[in-house]
């Protein structure tokens, strides 16, 4: 029983890790960023590349991945997303295009593979990352074997959630973000530099996805399409939790993680995912605004 709960917690923390960035970009900016999964992918590749080319360790890759993906996010916001505010479905489609572009950029090694040049670490193949020995293996907790790396992910997720909460609710930038969330025009009228804050928010959300990518690279193989399914999961978490609600995202990630974990232990992974999708549809139908929602604009 304890083991199942722990697996659920671990699945939930991975969901939350991906969803955290989305909760911010979607919640605060009303942007459905379909390229969010590709930010995770880029974070994972940053870890791979940093290991190969810079001989950086796994842990040192975390800040690097954050910076890299935040910069890519910033560029996407500046070039594309900025022109599409208020056109929710259009941003969804445009960022889908960006997602494909990013995948292909990695797969084709930025086009160099055409000229017979190859960059180690990129390309269509699978990549792996070595995790420091301290994070592998299992320890005994309450009479059960607990995977250390899963514990590590839960810890990182908790830390990032706390950091995000702190930024959103205890800093000047956070209060501006929340003002934009409720009413962007009014916020602008009150002197909030909406463009700048939006760009920062988007960059931060993307950076979080980058860190999620580092975490993923530690226990999954890394490949160009790895982000596609994650963005879907991330959105389901955000929508179920209630758009713009950090608490909602935490709660729904926990819920969906537990459901996924327990169904998977009873049947198989495929059915578990199916059950999660079913549950999500049910929740959206019953409460379209999500479990935790406020009346925003």
């Amino acid at each position: 029983m304890l083991e199942i709960i722990f697996i659920g917690l671990s699945v939930g923390s991975i969901l939350l890790l991906v969803a955290l960035g989305l909760a911010i970009t979607y919640g605060a900016m009303g942007v459905i960023n379909m390229a969010h999964g590709e930010m995770v992918m880029l974070g994972a590749y940053t870890t791979v590349m940093a290991g190969i080319w810079l001989h950086l360790g796994f842990l040192a890759s975390i800040p690097l991945a954050f910076v890299v993906t935040a910069l890519v996010g910033l560029a996407i916001e500046r070039v594309v997303v900025r022109r599409l505010y208020g056109r929710l479905l259009d941003t969804l489609l445009a960022t889908w295009g960006i997602a494909i572009l990013l995948q292909q950029a990695v797969r084709l090694e930025f086009g160099l593979s055409f000229f017979g040049k190859h960059i180690r670490g990129l390309g269509p193949g699978l990549q792996n990352v070595t995790v420091p020995p301290a994070l592998t293996g299992a320890i005994m907790v309450g009479g059960e074997d607990v995977n250390v790396y899963r514990l590590f992910i839960i810890g990182v997720t908790a830390a990032l959630t706390a950091l995000t909460w702190f930024i959103m609710y205890r800093t000047d930038i956070g209060i501006q973000v929340r003002a934009i969330m409720r009413n962007p025009r009014m916020a602008a009228a009150c002197g909030v530099n909406v463009q700048r804050i939006n760009a920062l928010t988007f960059a931060y959300g993307s950076g979080l996805a980058g860190i999620a990518g580092v975490m993923m690279s530690g226990f999954k193989t890394v490949f160009p399409d790895m982000g596609t399914s994650m963005v879907v999961d991330g959105f389901l978490v955000v929508v179920v939790g209630g758009v713009g609600s950090l608490l909602g995202a935490v709660f729904s990630a926990g819920l969906l993680g537990q459901v996924d974990g327990s169904v998977a232990s009873l049947t198989n992974d495929v059915l578990a995912r199916a059950v999660v999708f079913g549950l999500v549809i049910l929740i959206i139908v019953i409460r379209p605004t999500g479990l935790f929602s406020f009346k925003g604009r």
């Binding site: 459905i32 929710l88 479905l89 969804l92 879907v232 959105f235 389901l236 929508v239 198989n268 495929v270 059915l271 995912r273 199916a274 999708f277 079913g278 999500v280 549809i281 959206i284 139908v285 379209p288």
Partner: peptide
Amino acid sequence: KRIAGVFVSIITLALVLLVRLVLID
């Protein structure tokens, strides 16, 4: 239920993925 806009998109998206998984399973 007067569900509209992006929520319809997400429901339809989740449904097609759900059916796909059942089909594979």
